[in-house]
Write a protein that binds this DNA or RNA. Structure first.
Lengths: 217, 217
DNA sequence: TTAACGTTGTTATATTTTTCACAGCAAATA
DNA sequence: TATTTGCTGTGAAAAATATAACAACGTTAA
């Protein structure tokens, strides 16, 4: 049972995205160093990652783009469509719905929830809004395993508890709070405030690196 | 020049957030294992990270929350306020503005940009919208070093090039595309589609782990 | 006073992740 | 035919990251 690293998963998802953007009629094959250039990773790392999904390229032509997409998809995607719920139809929720809409055939945001009566039953970004009262019921009915939390920090833990009780196993958490969850639930945190702080910190680092080199040339 | 790892930076930002949420009158000190419980990291790792910022606790009382906040802040924050720009005042942009507003005293989103005439000059989430035509000019005038890109993938590279030409050193990129940037610019990618795919993948993993254990007990 | 306790700071160890380096191979070339 | 070329796949090495382990040390309690 050799588990694959989360970082590799992220990269594989990126490779697939890039490959999907290539017209196979114009370019049926691709070399690891070409993908490296496009993704910013190293060629060796790409070869390693590809190894992990069990696909092999040709030493002469490189990787067949279609075959590689298929291998990655076999590895990453579920055999059938996975249903996803989005909780919190504010600006962020709408943005996610909009970005995501129709992008991944094997993933479908089938329900959105909000406790704002004025939103309930409206269809927003192609998704009908259900009242949060119905959260557990709807999640069970629709067999939803993944939940996206685009709600304020104050309500995040409560909602997390509720979706988990209804059977959700993966949470994408945009609330700037550490969720307390059982070990059989995966949580991916996307803290926007932290992201800005991080970018600002490393921007500063880059600036000081620059002045360092200027001094030493 | 001992550089600190990005992972440690992320954790430090989280520690500070948690510490800021503690009332110092009720709890003036905290032990590494308490922070561990709250953050989900291990106590050893927390002690390590704290070491990196040069703060020391007491073997008896643990860490003084205020002193620790100050040490982390001295380490993470710039001495003066860093100015940040947000480009793309759609749903996502508004969400970021709203989440971020007033959260970090040393970071200020001082300008937002959009090329939709109907938004220009309106004040959205407390920030006046400037036309994208004025991007370079405004960034230089306001001495902005960090840019948040909440725009569609199609325009992301062009905008990135432009903000970099105007002096930006850190980019927080929400567009689902790999930006091509010079080495003296830091890019933090926050790809929402990928985040959903990742959460879905690991949700599935958790489910199969579970059935694995069920079979073997 | 002395011993036991519980925590930090830090060194050592383990683990994970990335990079290097090169054998092996088919095609192109001489 | 023999040689060169330029790729992949992968074992080995290196680098980065996390964990374990424990001395040192006030405090508490006997």
């Amino acid at each position: 049972m050799n588990s694959i690293s989360p970082k590799t998963i992220e990269r594989l998802i990126l490779y697939r995205r890039i490959l999907l953007g290539i017209n196979p009629d114009e370019k049926s094959h691709i070399y690891s160093h070409e993908l490296a250039k496009m993704t910013g990773f190293t060629a060796a790392q790409i070869r390693r990652d590809i190894m992990a999904v069990g696909y092999s390229g040709s030493p002469v032509h490189g990787y067949n783009t279609q075959a590689m997409i298929n291998s990655i998809s076999d590895f990453i995607d579920a055999p059938e469509v996975q249903n996803v719920a989005l909780i919190g139809v504010g600006h962020l929720g709408r943005a996610v719905l909009n970005y995501f809409k129709g992008r991944r055939p094997k993933l479908s945001i089938v329900a959105s929830f909000d406790n704002d009566e004025s939103k309930v039953n409206r269809v927003i970004q192609g998704c009908r809004v259900i009242h949060t009262n119905e959260l557990e019921k709807s999640i069970k009915e629709m067999n939803i395993q993944v939940a996206i939390l685009t709600i304020p920090a104050e309500s995040a833990q409560e909602i997390a508890d509720r979706v988990i009780s209804a059977g959700v196993k993966g949470i994408l958490n945009y609330a700037p709070i550490k969720l307390h969850t059982p070990p059989d639930v995966y949580v991916e945190n996307r803290d926007m405030i932290m992201a800005v702080e991080k970018a600002a910190y490393f921007a500063r680092q880059k600036m000081s690196e620059e002045s360092f080199y200027e001094l030493h040339t």
